[in-house]
């Protein structure tokens, strides 16, 4: 796994490098330090949410509810801020993480205990979470002016010109890497994803692993919810609508196998960076906004095809080989 992944990551990194150079030649304004800082800041949400999504996908699952979780948690946290604007930042951080974790546990519980297909469970909770925002907020939005200064302070902090959101993503990346490579449950995620039956024989409980994965996904989505609302200064029903698809696309581009068991932190980060670059470069290259979505979609598809080719193994089945031999004998 290691070697294949690294190989794939090097290719992806090379593609990204070529892309950056190419875009910088076409649009010199792109090749500046400020642009890169802006891309990294802008992609910070995608970094952390793609990592969390990868953990779910490793177990052969998928979490479609992350964007809805983000929006619901963002709304709840913003409403708390509205009533208690003087609470310290850490309270919002912990509160949003805990709310998100709770929502993630609902997903994990349904998937693990009832063994309902994750795509069905999270499609359902996606709608429920979005619906809850309307119910609790009455469809109204919470404006930045009502959230208080503390609430909105965190995203404005920068270190080396990079926003705190980016640095939080870095922390999450390090934590994910440690979790996946240096802990028992982390190793268990790969095992259940690669071969759930063999994992069961090794005493690794599939349900427990699923619960852990969805809990992490939920917690990261919740934290992102607070950061998102604080950064953009507004909470309403539709924030980050459809964002889950971008998150999943980042994973797929980063070499995470939808079939489970394959994926790495580095690959996922590169996948997210790839999307971040495309999304930021197209306007700079003066591509019509009408085309931007279609083009980024096509590029994503291309990346997926390349990935699928890389993943294809020499066929184990005797049949195709027999056919080839027959063709050779016949020729």
């Amino acid at each position: 796994m290691k070697r294949l992944a690294t190989y794939r990551e090097i290719i992806l990194a090379a593609i990204i490098a070529v892309m950056v150079i190419g875009i910088s030649i076409v649009a010199p304004a792109f090749g500046t330090r400020d642009t890169f800082v802006a891309v990294l800041n802008d992609t910070a949400f995608l970094f952390m949410m793609a990592l969390a999504q990868m953990i779910v996908i490793l177990t052969r699952g998928i979490d479609l509810s992350v964007a809805a979780n983000l929006a619901l948690t963002g709304m709840l946290t913003a409403m708390v801020a509205e009533h208690h604007p003087d609470l310290p930042i850490i309270v919002f951080v912990v509160l949003s993480t805990v709310i998100g974790l709770g929502l993630g546990l609902i997903n994990g519980g349904l998937v693990a205990a009832l063994q309902i297909p994750p795509i069905v469970v999270t499609l359902g909770t996606l709608a429920v979470f979005r619906g809850m925002i309307v119910v609790i907020g009455g469809g109204a939005q919470v404006d930045g002016a009502n959230m208080g200064a503390n609430f909105q302070l965190l995203p404005k902090l920068t270190v080396f010109g990079l926003s705190s959101i980016f640095w939080i993503a870095v922390l999450i990346a390090v934590a994910c890497w440690l979790f996946l490579t240096r802990t028992r449950p982390g190793r268990g995620l790969y095992a259940v994803g690669c071969n759930p039956v063999a994992a069961r024989y090794c005493g690794i409980d599939l349900g427990r692993q699923q619960l852990i994965a969805y809990a992490i996904s939920g917690a990261v989505a919740g934290l992102s919810g607070y950061l998102w609302v604080a950064r953009y200064g507004v909470a309403y029903v539709e924030i980050a609508t459809g964002y889950e698809l971008t998150v999943i696309a980042a994973c797929v581009i980063g070499g995470v196998s939808i079939g489970g068991g394959v994926g790495s932190v580095a690959g996922t980060l590169l996948g997210a960076l790839f999307i971040g670059l495309i999304v930021n470069a197209l306007p700079v290259m003066q591509v019509s906004p009408f085309w931007q979505m279609a083009i980024s979609g096509a590029v994503i598809l291309l990346a997926v095809i390349i990935n699928a080719r890389a993943e294809a193994r020499p066929d184990k089945l005797i049949l195709p080989r027999a056919r080839r031999e027959a063709a050779r004998v016949g020729a």
Binding site: M1, Y190, A191, C194, A198, I204
Partner: peptide, 24 residues
């Protein structure tokens, strides 16, 4: 177990990861 491919080996993982999987 009887069925090496399905019940025993985790083929995409390395030898080390397989060896220690039941005794992490």
């Amino acid at each position: 177990p009887e069925d090496r491919q399905h019940q025993g080996a985790v083929l995409p993982l390395g030898i080390r990861e397989n060896t220690t999987l039941a005794s992490l």
